[in-house]
Amino acid sequence: MSTPIRLGTRRSALAQAQSGHVAAALEKFSGRRVELVPITSEGDTNRASLSEIGGQGIFATRLREALFAGECDFLVHSLKDLPTAVPEGLVIAATPKREDPRDVVLTRDGTPLHELRSGSTVGTGSPRRIAQVHRRAPKAEVVDIRGNVDSRLARVASGELDAVILAAAGLSRLGAETPLRREELGLAEWPTAPGQGSLAVETRADAPEELLAALAGLDDTDTRLAITVERAILQGLDAGCQAPMAAHAVVEGSSIRVRTVVYAADGGRRIGLDVTEDLNGEYIRRNGSGNGADAADGADPMHAARELGFTVARRLLDQGAAGLVSREQSS
Rank of each mutant, 00 (worst) to 15 (best):
S30F: 03
D318L: 13
I227R: 11
Q235C: 09
G89L: 07
L316M: 12
R315L: 12
S255D: 12
T178S: 15
R152E: 05
L106W: 05
S126F: 09
S120K: 07
G309Y: 00
L36R: 12
A232F: 01
P244L: 09
T223R: 01
T107N: 10
R117C: 06
T84W: 04
I92H: 01
E115I: 02
R327L: 08
R117A: 13
G323R: 04
D44W: 03
E252A: 14
H77D: 08
R306H: 05
V34W: 08
R64C: 13
P83Q: 06
L90C: 00
L153V: 10
A167Y: 02
V34M: 07
E202L: 14
R102M: 03
E328F: 03
Q18H: 12
G123F: 11
V86N: 03
E277Y: 04
R62A: 14
Q242G: 06
R270I: 02
P96N: 11
G309K: 10
T124S: 15
V22C: 02
I130H: 07
G55F: 00
G281I: 03
E230V: 14
V261Q: 07
T95L: 12
K139E: 15
A213H: 09
L63Q: 06
A15W: 04
I58Y: 08
D220F: 04
R6C: 00
A167S: 13
H248C: 07
E209R: 15
A247L: 11
C241K: 00
R152F: 05
I58K: 01
R270G: 10
V133A: 08
H303L: 13
I284D: 11
Y263R: 13
D297K: 11
R135H: 06
L36A: 07
C72L: 01
E42H: 11
F310D: 00
G272T: 11
E307I: 11
P4D: 12
S289Y: 02
L199H: 05
L215S: 08
T124L: 13
V122R: 01
S78L: 06
L75F: 01
E71I: 00
E210D: 11
A25P: 01
S78E: 02
D206N: 08
R102W: 01
R62E: 07
T178K: 04
H114A: 13
A213T: 12
R173M: 14
I53D: 13
V143K: 03
M245W: 05
L237N: 11
E115G: 05
V133F: 06
R182A: 15
P112G: 15
L273F: 09
G43L: 11
G323T: 04
L174A: 00
R146A: 09
